[in-house]
Nucleic acid binder design. Structure first.
Lengths: 162, 162
DNA sequence: GATGAAACTTACGTCCA
DNA sequence: TGGACGTAAGTTTCATC
């Protein structure tokens, strides 16, 4: 991957509806090679897919809650089931295993506090958890699906071309 | 918005490359009305855009760090500048104002701990912060851009049709 | 890599029920 | 609203240099 690939990715991360011809123009390439680069990055799995992003307010999920979970180090089997059960809730949009004092961290989206309470009850009914603590976000100041591309590993062989 | 709109959104949240004709088939509609519904939801801002999602490992940003920030309740002006400065870092992919003991929460993506340390130094060089604590994610068990649609407000007038 | 063109697939507007 | 049809535009795959 070289600088041109990075440019392509940067643009596609912003807006994937761009026509390949327009994209090529912006990158300084003609359509065919630009198209081939995109194909390759899709095959290589660099591009995982193209999705529509919705407005959280419009679909009534404007409240984000971060849920910190502490478990009593259970069996591998329990942990597997725990991950499965929690991950199946569509309200859980992010789910991390953490280092440090918290074992797991969830980002949950719901319409309001009442809905969060209902979600919480459904969750703990399905799986026993030692300690749960919830932190409510008052405002989402930034949310982007655009990963920084500054850390991308650039092929030295290719980077000499430009 | 009715159940058909919800079906359309559900599919587009998964994969926005679907042709309108295929989408229409899955939803049980012909292409024109399906296309019109999509247009309307784009105009209404329900659909915010279509983007490419990249593989964090492939672009070398596999490490997520949650950064909890406590401030000494500063002036409005300071808070505005703080938000601006922090939000400008491309490594900061999510940024929330919280209720409770933590004032702000960031999700930061970097290649490794060393890169996080470098990011941290650059951030505190730009703006003074009272208290910062970092929690590292060991594993991303779930990450989705798909918002749950179960809370969507359905037009009663329309819902009688089906 | 660039260019150009062919074949095919979509998107999108018009018209009618 | 939804369905049918047509055109313009896009995508994808060829050649060529």
């Amino acid at each position: 991957m070289d600088r041109l690939d990075r440019k392509i990715l940067r643009l596609l991360q912003e807006d994937s509806t761009l026509a390949v011809a327009d994209l090529a123009k912006k990158v300084g390439l003609s359509t065919t090679p630009c198209w081939r680069r995109i194909q390759k990055m899709e095959e290589d799995g660099v591009i995982r897919g193209r999705v529509a992003l919705l407005d959280p307010v419009k679909v009534n999920t404007k409240v984000t809650v971060f849920v910190s979970i502490r478990t009593n180090t259970h069996s591998i089997e329990w942990l597997r089931r725990f991950s499965e059960v929690v991950g199946e809730f569509p309200e859980v949009v992010e789910f991390y295993r953490m280092s440090g004092d918290v074992d797991y961290l969830l980002r949950v989206v719901v319409p309001d506090i009442a809905a969060y309470d209902a979600f919480y009850k459904r969750m703990i009914a399905k799986i026993e958890i030692r300690d749960v603590s919830s932190a409510f976000a008052m405002e989402q100041i930034k949310y982007t699906t655009q990963l920084p591309l500054d850390y991308m590993v650039i092929d030295q062989a290719k980077s000499n071309e430009e």
